[in-house]
Design a protein around this nucleic acid. Sequence first.
DNA 1: CCATTCGCTCAACACTTGTTGACCCAATCA
DNA 2: TGATTGGGTCAACAAGTGTTGAGCGAATGG
Lengths: 172, 172
Amino acid sequence: MRILDSARELFAEKGFERTTIRAVAAAASVDPALVMQYFGSKRELFSQAVKVVPAPLTATDTDELVDQLLASLGLKLGGLPEGALAMMRSMLTDQAAADHVRVSLGRQIDSVGAALPAAEDPQLRAALVVTALLGVTIGHQLLGVTALREVPADHIAALLRPAIKVLAGPPG
Amino acid sequence: MRILDSARELFAEKGFERTTIRAVAAAASVDPALVMQYFGSKRELFSQAVKVVPAPLTATDTDELVDQLLASLGLKLGGLPEGALAMMRSMLTDQAAADHVRVSLGRQIDSVGAALPAAEDPQLRAALVVTALLGVTIGHQLLGVTALREVPADHIAALLRPAIKVLAGPPG
DNA sequence: CCATTCGCTCAACACTTGTTGACCCAATCA
DNA sequence: TGATTGGGTCAACAAGTGTTGAGCGAATGG
């Protein structure tokens, strides 16, 4: 739907707070009241707009796991779906978004921790892997750090891979 | 000053947008108009409140560099100054904060890139090191990722160190 | 042909925000 | 004592917000 697309785009660009119903409506060439009629509230519009199904991690060996992680954080070809960007954009300033991201990352960390070679602190190592990748994604997609702009995602992935494997634990 | 302390605290907790002059004034037991009289505008109050002098990187060898990086991103004892947290909290949703962080990270990346062993892509590797650490800090300090809470900063630093060295490039 | 529904729009409400100008009141000074 | 200054407060403004309820016009159904 046109409204959801405009909403997703604006939420990804400006975050929850700074995106107004009126702006979404204007971007979709529609009356603000219509947005309310369809979605009931700004929060609900946000929820619908950012809805994204996280691909579950199905990897068994570490190599595959790293690749799936890189992909799920947009560090391989294709980048992130705009809904995920919208969620990330708001996660530091919106309680609901923060909660969602926290449990979402938590789940991912649990998966990764379970899949890690039985090093010490698998849960902690997993958390570091995931948050480190999150940081790269933020710098790349949300902050536009200049040294990362225009760098193809695979190149980034290639440089990250060995470091992640070290962080994941002693080679099993 | 009491106003600046309250402002810093609130900015760090809620970000620029969601922190109101009235809330800052109330927290400092002061009239909102007085805050304006002292600082002229909310933006200026923010600037003064988050002002923080980034410790320059003076390291020569990689080990020392990594330690300084960990420290400057709050991953060693002491955590980050509240002003830095406030800046980071707002960086995804406030243009001015985003600009500030981008150039600040850019500077840090340049320093790190210059100090790296002459691997290929030193600038890019430096950017990945810095943003990865940024991500861990966000997860730890701003998002409260459960697997990272209550973990002493040195422990985190210890696990990160080897991975960072790998990411920084082939051992010189 | 009239009544009714349904998608949509308009204008407005209630509230919050940053910001300002008039004002007050105690201390200073002549 | 009387005038003046200066730190501090009060009430208000103008703009922007999410949200709502009355109403419009066209399609639908009898």
